[in-house]
């Protein structure tokens, strides 16, 4: 039994607005998933092939929780065929009023993301979401407790939306951000402006510590006994290393996994990961049983 097992974890109420308006999510209510044609408001080039796409997608934005994702597709297009799963990076406005915009932070890695990068304001994109199991936040927390967000490369995309939720829960958010080089440490200044402490590592040593983000995590776990929870998103090798470190340290951790997906809604069974179940293992669908998994559950 891990040390955190008796910690009360509450499923965060999904958006500020929902909490503010007194509206709550009934656990028995069916998930509110929308499929809509969203207008591109902005597609900002952040350099190093990274883009911040802002979409008018009110129902999706309003229903979204940190850690969830959306399936993006070009309606009617047969090649590339499959929708692309993308983390919901943030919803706007972020001041607690009713969100109407959805932000997707992505990096060009293939044909689908090339098409996303080419989107211009006014063009349309089909958005299915919000999908998947959100992050949860521990409660109550000891004063001064930290929440570490461990990001590998474009894995940082999932964290902006989480920051205000951590702050509201009384946690001090710290971003441990690793990338190949300084240019790929995208949006790090945004995090700093939100009051997040940012620590960086680059493989080429161009900024921060030279090496992987796991080095930063090792330091943080050693020096900060007040770490209440760790969230991690990035390449599989990084998540595996992070997961093993956290299991060894006994700190509660949630990993956000990525995968090729067919449908995003649990039907195709394509996006599975091996997880611990009872005395054996099972293949869990990343799209509906995840993408958030406790580190202790994943069998790499």
């Amino acid at each position: 039994m891990l040390a955190h097992a008796n910690l009360v974890i509450f499923q965060a109420l999904c958006y500020d607005a929902r909490a503010l308006s007194g509206e709550t999510m009934s656990p028995s209510s069916p998930p509110s998933i929308h499929d809509l044609s969203a207008r591109v408001i902005e597609n900002r080039d952040l350099g190093a092939s990274h883009f911040l796409l802002t979409l008018q997608a009110e129902p999706v934005a309003a229903a979204a929780c940190p850690g969830q994702f959306a399936m993006l597709r070009f309606a009617g297009r047969m090649d590339p065929l499959l929708p692309r799963p993308m983390s919901i990076s943030d919803v706007l406005p972020a001041d607690g009023s009713h969100p109407v915009l959805l932000q997707i932070l992505h990096k060009v890695v293939g044909r689908g993301t090339q098409l996303l990068a080419a989107l211009k304001p006014g063009e349309r994109l089909q958005v299915l979401g919000p999908l998947g199991k959100p992050f949860s936040v521990p409660s109550p927390v000891a004063p001064g407790s930290q929440a570490l967000m461990v990001a590998g490369g474009i894995g940082v995309a999932i964290f902006p939306f989480l920051v205000p939720m951590l702050q509201r829960a009384g946690l001090k958010p710290v971003l441990l951000f690793g990338a190949r080089s300084s240019r790929e440490l995208v949006r790090k200044d945004w995090f700093a402006r939100q009051g997040v402490e940012v620590r960086t590592a680059t493989e080429d040593g161009s900024e921060g510590a030279k090496g992987f983000v796991t080095t930063l995590l090792q330091e943080a776990l050693g020096s900060s006994p007040e770490v209440a929870i760790v969230y991690a998103c990035g390449p599989q090798a990084m998540l595996k290393a992070v997961g093993e470190m956290l299991i060894a340290s006994g700190v509660s951790a949630q990993l956000s996994l990525e995968s090729y997906m067919g449908c995003g809604i649990g039907a195709c069974l394509g996006c599975v990961v091996k997880v611990r179940r009872d005395s054996g293992f099972a293949y869990a669908r990343i799209c509906v049983e995840g993408p958030t998994f406790p580190a202790s559950e994943v069998l790499w």
């Binding site: 590339p80 995968s259 293992f281 293949y283």
Partner: peptide, 30 residues
């Protein structure tokens, strides 16, 4: 979904991949 006598876990991942105007899958009848 195809039914068998006993429950089946299916194949290890990766199970799906996009191909030109299509996809390839090997779910393994989970």
């Amino acid at each position: 979904k195809g039914l068998s006598l006993s429950p089946r876990k299916g194949n290890a991942p990766p199970r799906t991949f996009e191909t030109p105007a299509g996809m390839i899958n090997a779910i393994g009848l989970a």
